[in-house]
Design a binder for these strands. Sequence first.
RNA 1: GCUGGUGUGGCGGAAUAGGUAGACGCAAGGGACUUAAAAUCCCUCGGUGCUUACACACCGUGUCGGUUCGAGUCCGACCACCAGCACCA
Length: 805
Amino acid sequence: MKYDFTTVEPKWQKAWEENDAFKAVDFSEKPKWYGLVEFPYPSGAGMHVGHIKAYSSIEVISRKKRMQGYNVLFPIGFDSFGLPAENYAIKTNTHPHDITEKNIAHFSDQLRKVGFSFDWSRVIATSHKDYYKWTQWIFEKLFEHGLVFRSKTLVNYCPHCKVVLSNEDSQGGKCDICHSEVVQLPKDVWFLRITDYADKLLDGLNHVDYPDSIKQQEIAWIGKSTGAFVNFRLAGTDEKLEIYTTRCDTLYGVTFMVVAPEHPVLDKYKDRIRNWDAVEQYRKESAKKTEFERTQLVKDKTGVKIDGLMAVNPITGKEIPLFIADYVMMGYGTGAIMAVPAHDQRDYDFAKKFGMDIVQVIKGGDISKEAYTGDGEMINSGFLNGYTNKKDSIKAMLKHIEKEGIGHKGVQYKMKDWAFNRQRYWGEPIPLIHCPKCGTVTVPEEELPLELPPVKNFEPGTDGQSPLAKIDSFVNCTCPKCGGPAKRETDTMPQWAGSSWYFLRFCDPHNDKAFADRKKLEYWMPVDQYNGGMEHVTRHLLYSRFWHRFLYDIGEVNTPEPYAKRTYQGMILGADGEKMSKSKGNVIDPLDIVKLYGADTLRTYVMFMGDYQSAAPWSDEAVRGCKRFLDRVAGLTDIMTAEKEDPKLENSLHKTIRKVTEDIDNMKFNTAIAAMMSLINEFYKAGSITKDDLITFIKLLSPFAPHITEEIWQYIGMNPDGKTFITLSSWPEYSEEKAKDSVIELGVQVNGKVRGTVQLAADVSKEDALAAAKAEPNVSKFLEGATIVKEVYVPGRIINFVIRK
RNA sequence: GCUGGUGUGGCGGAAUAGGUAGACGCAAGGGACUUAAAAUCCCUCGGUGCUUACACACCGUGUCGGUUCGAGUCCGACCACCAGCACCA
């Protein structure tokens, strides 16, 4: 059969859609399977080959699951709020809404052209008001449950995008959107109390099937540590300076204290500080440093000793000096530390530079050279002397300080609360109202969605004010509680809000009474497999698990974790091995490949190019190799002439069914395709195959290359009415019996070196196998005149003669 | 520095639980078909040696050691690269 993909592919795409081939059925009797891919941000650039790879895994598995009799939900939508559209709109003097709708249409068209089996009746977009109504509704629930709070603290701020960023959005000190340096500014910001969920987010990882790399990264990001809070008194005052430590058992070794430059205690005791000028100067300098600079100079410690203020070591009663230094961060712990130079390298470096005492309290190491951070016997530590186990000494000290009232056990997280408001236009308006009488109140549920006003000028204010603040008709409102005049919150939600619950909406996308019907949620959730990028592990994945867990806690959803299984894909690099980027000119447009070779070729290549989880460079030649393979598949109809099944081919066929079935389940798509390539080589070598051979083969291939297999299926008369699709037929079953080899080839080693091979019946006896091996000419050559010390026979694997001459 | 991962031909990569290293594909070389090219088909394809040839021998999975009849796979030490975190007290 000759086939022309330019006509065949659109033909089947249309036929599938017209016949609702991929429609997920609520409450079907069949077992459900919910496969999810990260819905795209509809950028102006259109789809990237990375999207194709990311979606193809769940696509292939979904198509196979349908054939295996599952009721599959494989939805798609658009994460359509966000800064790039807004920035682009400003640049081109258009409106983000129009641009977004245009991009969504473009993306939808591209996705269809690749032949993905999405259920298009469930498509959603986070910027549509029937969707963001429920994003706002969930936010109000969070507010009602005390998980939203306002606080003026140092936050990450991107001067280029003119927005406050969360910690997750400024990893590595860079803005997640524009990659420029983030600065720390004191701002009044809305936070979501994600840290309240830190333990639940950690525990949830024990109940899901995620790769270790993902679990570890989330655990590290949450960064839980257990320790103690201890109060140090300022000498001559009642002021208590609280510190956090994981090693309270080293209290006897504390010889000075350090507070972060921003620590408020300094201002409070300004009058007593004799070198205030120096302190202020140091503060200014450290404020100027970027986060990057502040964390780079690890060795060279800077700081200023505070003249006029001393602290008191609560356990020894000794007065100790107090410093400010920027190696102590305001954002972790209490912004103040007890310094134990003998057992902490940073404190050690600092003590050496400023001539502080170094008191060893744990035996071991050489503290004349460096801090000793290992374990050992406690010394110079009063009642702790003689303890040799870290756990025990910490426990004993904790008991002591709790009894004395100078401290208590505590937990700290590296993760910070989620800075949630953005001073930009193209996002969900935060549904809060500021009333001078009632305080902050939520917009009543019946008034949701709080619609984004359609304005012309949405440029961000230079003073960090949201564009919405300029619209009086939006800002001024009446308080829903007292009816008095009030003002609306003018900031919008961050990029990640809408994506934090979209998988729930797919279960019931058109519901206008609830974010989703409870019964439908119970039917579809949890997501059985969710594929996405590694870059979202400490952003979207964490945020969405948090929202979902909250909804579970308030009884709105039926599972504590949203995703039963998470997988990820490796990046597609440019042909030069570099990350694809416009500036390098190595970007591949997936639609160019579709035009040139067809969607099936693109899909097959993307799955064949290498291990799914690994990064691999693009190769135009290798793409053509996949096209060649598919052309050979089309040619199979010409050799479909055999009447009787060849037992050897049948054996290979059943082995291939087993291999492809297992490989798809294990995401080993490259070897699944390789197995089919091997089989087709065998087919052509055999010269003729039966119709059943062909049917089985194209069924196996159909999840990868659905169009060509659909065309062959019809060509050989399997689709007389035009809607009996191969993609909805049954997945081939293999028989272990038929997949078994009757003759096996075994390697024969002499002293561990392969010297020959023997052909043996699969059920050969040990004696016969060894005899045949000894008779193999090249083996017998080595055995001549030697004593066989040992005969190793592993059935089906190897024969090894250990000899001595 | 810490955490996780990777290291195999010219290239992308195969190799359940230790058992014939290099499947499959690409590139390359040779040949067939063709006026020619493209396409297609057939053959060769880790290195070295030896051979008319079939064969065969030695070396070979980042480096050095170890365990084992047998190591790409397990253990120990190291090196390189990738990703994430990073003065986290």
